[in-house]
Simulated scan of single mutants.
Amino acid sequence: MPTQCVPALDGQVALPDRHLLAYEDVFATGRCELLMGDVIALADRDPALLPRLDRLVDGVCADLRAAAEETGRRVPLADCVPTQGDPTEPNIADPLCWLDFEFAGHNTAVGEAVNLLWYSMTLGGWFVPDCQPDVYGRTLHLALPPQTRPRIDVRYSWNTGPGRGAAITQALNGLRGEGGTAMEEIHDFLALRILGVIPAARLNGHASCSC
């Protein structure tokens, strides 16, 4: 990343098994004001903040593209860092400054971009504040209540044989019970079983799915 977009290195301490690096506190020095997650939350509430958010996101994308173009090369996946560099909204300050270098290194460029999108869409907007409120509270300055409420729609069709189709239909009718109220949420859980990405126990009343 461009050196002007990262905290200054204040010093380092050599330990027997590692080097400990100390970076500038960009908030204490007044260089930055908020984290990207805070700017997103404010823009959710006040459209006047959208230009500020646009500038920040444009800068993030420009840095990711520049890093890929300047240093990117094809290498075996085993040579990449097994965990991501974490380009997510709690680790990006405004004005643009990249934070948290614990897992920086040979990361997959597309993987980093996907992490940014997935966190912005789902984890930062819903899953972390709802299911990990302690993490949300300590990683953002404002930690405003999220405005995101996900709805997962799954559309698919199966060309089953007459016997298998009849068995599935009969099972669905039987599990629902008389009037369709005994297991009315079966479609929600079926969608989760198909997707297999979020444990049902972590969901709450704000989340809804349709299948």
Results as ranks from 00 to 15, higher is better:
N173I: 07
I40W: 06
E33W: 02
E184N: 12
L203G: 04
C211I: 14
G196F: 07
R138G: 07
L140Q: 06
R193E: 15
E184M: 08
P129L: 05
L99D: 03
W98K: 00
F127D: 09
L175D: 09
D25T: 10
P150H: 00
D10F: 09
D25I: 12
N115D: 15
A143Q: 07
T71G: 11
L142I: 00
I152D: 09
L123C: 09
H187N: 09
L35A: 02
R176W: 05
L192D: 14
A207R: 02
P150D: 05
V114G: 02
P162K: 07
D94P: 00
T160D: 15
C5K: 01
T3V: 12
E184I: 08
A109P: 03
C211P: 07
P47E: 10
H187R: 05
G59C: 11
I92L: 14
L116E: 03
D46R: 04
I194H: 02
N159F: 07
L192R: 08
Q84G: 09
A143R: 02
G163C: 10
Q12R: 13
L64A: 09
V13T: 12
A143I: 01
G174K: 00
L142Q: 02
V81I: 14
D54I: 03
D38N: 08
A8V: 08
N91R: 00
A68G: 11
E33A: 14
N173L: 13
V154A: 01
A109E: 11
M121K: 09
Q170T: 14
T83V: 12
D58H: 13
Q4D: 15
G125P: 10
L35H: 10
Q170E: 14
